[in-house]
């Protein structure tokens, strides 16, 4: 049997020290299998984003074990974690995090550059990814020429272009109005269902969490609820 894709075991993350010690994560156990669409919810400061950043190797845990596809991440150095992000992970952030003054297609190409793909191949892949998120014809628009929803689609295309095993989305609809939010969630649900893409998403909106197949709730740095959900029909 193949190992779970993501396996967190007793993960802690603390900031500061002594009196000022803050426990953002206080012993988190969480396992995500391939093909799942997991929504993580919880009040502000519950540690849901911190957990997400640790899963994404953007941050390092203070203690506990994190195995990605069976590999202990704690033993990886900075460059190896970069390779893990490059080859297996795709990120979607609340603030989009696109390069300014850079066209949509160039933003989508970015991870492919680091993958060492040639220009011609990159262009094909990036164009394909933009098509999948419904942005054909907007390839040469810069972020400032795109709406928030469109920028987030570019970000999703960027995450997809590298063909990751997992897409990690941190409040992907946080900056969007309801209509755009629904469009983004439907897109993500489609990617999960049709392409079998594993998605872990942090959100504080129940409406958005409802698109996922599993709900994990954080409170005070711990998982307090973890249940499969009736998926919302789109």
């Amino acid at each position: 049997m193949s190992p779970p894709l993501i396996e967190l075991e007793g993960i802690t993350r603390t900031y500061g020290s002594g009196e000022a010690l803050v426990r953002a994560l206080d012993g988190v156990d969480l396992t995500v299998e391939k093909g799942e669409f997991v929504a993580i919810m919880g009040p502000s400061g519950s540690g849901k984003s911190t957990a997400m950043n640790i899963i994404g190797c953007l941050d390092r845990p203070s203690g506990g074990h994190y195995r990605f596809n069976g590999v202990e991440v704690a033993t990886l150095d900075q460059d190896q974690r970069a390779l893990l992000r490059r080859n297996y992970l795709g990120f979607v952030f609340q603030g989009y995090n696109l390069l300014p003054r850079t066209t949509a297609i160039e933003n989508v190409e970015l991870p492919l550059i680091y993958k060492g793909q040639r220009k011609a191949e990159r262009l094909v892949r990036a164009r394909e990814a933009l098509q999948r998120v419904g942005l054909e014809g907007r390839e040469h628009h810069t972020p400032s020429q795109l709406s928030g929803g469109q920028q987030q689609r570019v970000a999703i295309a960027r995450a997809l272009a590298g063909e990751p095993m997992v897409m990690l989305a941190d409040e992907p609809t946080g900056n969007l109005d309801t209509k755009r939010s629904v469009e983004i969630m439907e897109l993500m649900q489609k990617l999960n269902r049709e392409a079998g893409l594993t998605i872990v998403m942090v959100t504080h909106e129940e409406d958005m969490a409802a698109y996922a197949s599993r709900l994990v709730v954080f409170t005070d740095g711990k998982v307090v609820r973890d249940e499969l959900m009736q998926e919302r029909a789109s």
Partner: peptide
């Protein structure tokens, strides 16, 4: 951003 998409330092 570059690091998050997989660039090495």
């Amino acid at each position: 951003i570059r690091l998050s998409v997989g660039a090495q330092a």
